[in-house]
Design a binder for these strands. Structure first.
Lengths: 123, 123
DNA sequence: CCCTCTGTTATACTTGATATAACACAGAAT
DNA sequence: ATTCTGTGTTATATCAAGTATAACAGAGGG
């Protein structure tokens, strides 16, 4: 369990949690069917409130990354909706690329970044 | 001036404003040295508060997209810091790509999206 | 039957986003 | 000079969102 929270960040804690868990799934640190730590366990480990973790898990459920069972807790369960995923990726990329373009980052450099990150994830 | 705010979005209004203005710069709708509408003009046009626009402009200044003059208002002035831009792009892409990968989007499909968006911007 | 584990709900507290109002400075018109 | 109108700024208030504390409810193991 390698989750690092930056308390000085302007990003909400539950958002950081969501992102790190999703990245954990992408890197196969968490696998389909695997059980995440209970809200209390994780909250204590990080030093934050149980409710904040609960909110992160709820959002991950809503976005189709986990399923929540009252007895077993949160379990990795990807809901594959590729059309929605492509739409979401397009919208988020539009913002990221606009920022990069304004600052003089070329199309080639972006493609290189993509390959670099995909490399980190597939390894 | 084509700025559309979604009041049902979970994104804060000032964030939507920042993003749309940055996309406006990327599409050459706004050019270096050009003057943005005054905080009151834009606020009235959109139907929001002047202070919300002011916050967006302040953030754009802080991030190096505009300069604010008490007399002339906000003026497009890109502060080219490519190293920081590449770092930022890497961090944001890490999150976007993780989400996409989990949902079964391939590396090739991401590259296609990049080209598609760059095409829209350069046109 | 009790103890402990799970998530859930109710309630407060604190911070951030947005709005209202008054301010201060600069330039144009009179 | 004086007034008017434009700019961003600051102070204050309001409302929503993020986070925390505490008590609850169901499930399973001793």
């Amino acid at each position: 369990m390698f989750i690092e929270i930056d308390f000085n960040s302007d990003e909400a804690i539950y958002v950081q949690l969501c992102n790190q868990i999703i990245m954990g799934i992408a890197t196969s640190q968490f696998r389909e069917g695997e059980q995440l730590p209970s809200v209390r366990q994780l909250a204590d480990a990080i030093g934050i409130n149980m409710h904040t973790v609960n909110k992160a898990y709820s959002i991950l459920q809503q976005e189709g990354f986990v399923k929540i069972d009252r007895r077993r807790g949160a379990i990795i369960a990807i809901d594959l909706n590729k059309l929605a995923a492509l739409q979401e990726a397009h919208d988020m990329l539009s913002v990221v690329l606009a920022r990069a373009m304004c600052k003089g980052v070329s199309r080639t450099e972006i493609h290189e970044l993509i390959d670099e990150i995909y490399g980190e994830y597939e390894a």
